[in-house]
């Protein structure tokens, strides 16, 4: 759901934009500066008022807030709630903000961290959370890292208050369009068939199977993927390991455990 108001688009009034980072690698913020040929034109569409990595000043008055990273502790949670109150539009930038990203992997191995470490290093190392588990997020921009081209195409839509519609087709389609050989046929685990497209088959184009960093396409089921991996002779465990990495497929994996549970009961 989009609840942002359209901004007046003229040269005098530019929307005030703030970039924030919670727990992440800063890679998505770095992507904002990439695609050098048009970077100044892109950045001049907005008035950046808070961007710790790039500018000195800070501000508590902004229209659009881009937030990178997952929520790992109480302090970040409070900060996030504050940002929600101040901003008209909150944009989750990248997989960490959208699904918890690579950070949520720690949830599955929390047992390995000693109590002493938990207290010493971080105030409360609970399961890192995605932004929409805490606040309402208006726009999601998927990917680890985000694709700058997509960011550039989404940004005008945010400004004009139009809804951002994400692709319903999988990465597979883009991969085929780019005339790549199917990696599953080459024995490489790949989640391209179930992952939301829009990255222009970034990883698969260079021979690396898809990791599902952009999350699943609608109506995809665990069983479909299992059948596919069986047919192509790919070990399902390696697909599951990749699915667990960026957090986008967590619901799908929960479904699997439920299914297993049911089959055990029967």
């Amino acid at each position: 759901m989009i609840r942002n108001k359209p901004f007046v688009l003229n040269k005098c009034v530019r929307p005030k934009v703030a970039f924030f980072k919670l727990t992440s690698c800063e890679g998505c913020q770095l992507q904002v500066f990439n695609r050098e040929s048009g970077v100044l034109k892109f950045l001049n569409q907005m008035e950046i008022v808070d961007f710790r990595e790039a500018i000195t000043g800070t501000s508590s008055c902004y229209d659009v807030a881009f937030i990178e990273g997952s929520v790992n502790n109480e302090e970040q949670k409070m900060k996030l709630i504050e940002i929600r109150h101040r901003a008209d539009t909150v944009v989750a930038l990248g997989s960490c903000a959208c699904f918890g990203g690579i950070n949520q992997l720690v949830a599955s191995c929390e047992k390995g961290i000693s109590e002493a470490d938990k207290g010493k290093i971080s105030p409360s190392p609970k399961t890192p959370k995605a932004l929409d588990e805490i606040i309402q997020v208006d726009v999601h921009i998927y990917g680890c890292p985000v694709k700058k081209k997509e960011l550039e195409s989404i940004f005008p839509r945010i400004l004009s208050g139009k809804p951002v519609i994400h692709n319903k087709y999988p990465v597979c389609r883009e991969c085929k369009q780019n005339h790549n050989i199917c990696l599953l046929d080459l024995g490489e685990p790949c989640l391209g068939s179930v992952t939301r497209g829009g990255c222009d088959a970034w990883c698969t184009g260079s021979g690396m199977g898809c990791w599902g960093c952009r999350g699943p396409i609608p109506k995809v089921t665990q069983r479909q993927l299992e059948r596919l991996s069986q047919r192509k002779g790919i070990d399902f465990d390696s697909l599951a390991e990749r699915m667990s990495c960026f957090g986008g497929f967590s619901n799908l994996l929960c479904q699997q455990t439920e299914d297993l549970y049911k089959s055990c009961q029967l």
Partner: peptide, 14 residues
């Protein structure tokens, strides 16, 4: 920087 425990995340992965 918040601790992310990469050492633990990587253990047991392929």
């Amino acid at each position: 920087e918040t601790a992310r425990f990469f050492e633990k995340m990587l253990a047991g992965k392929k």
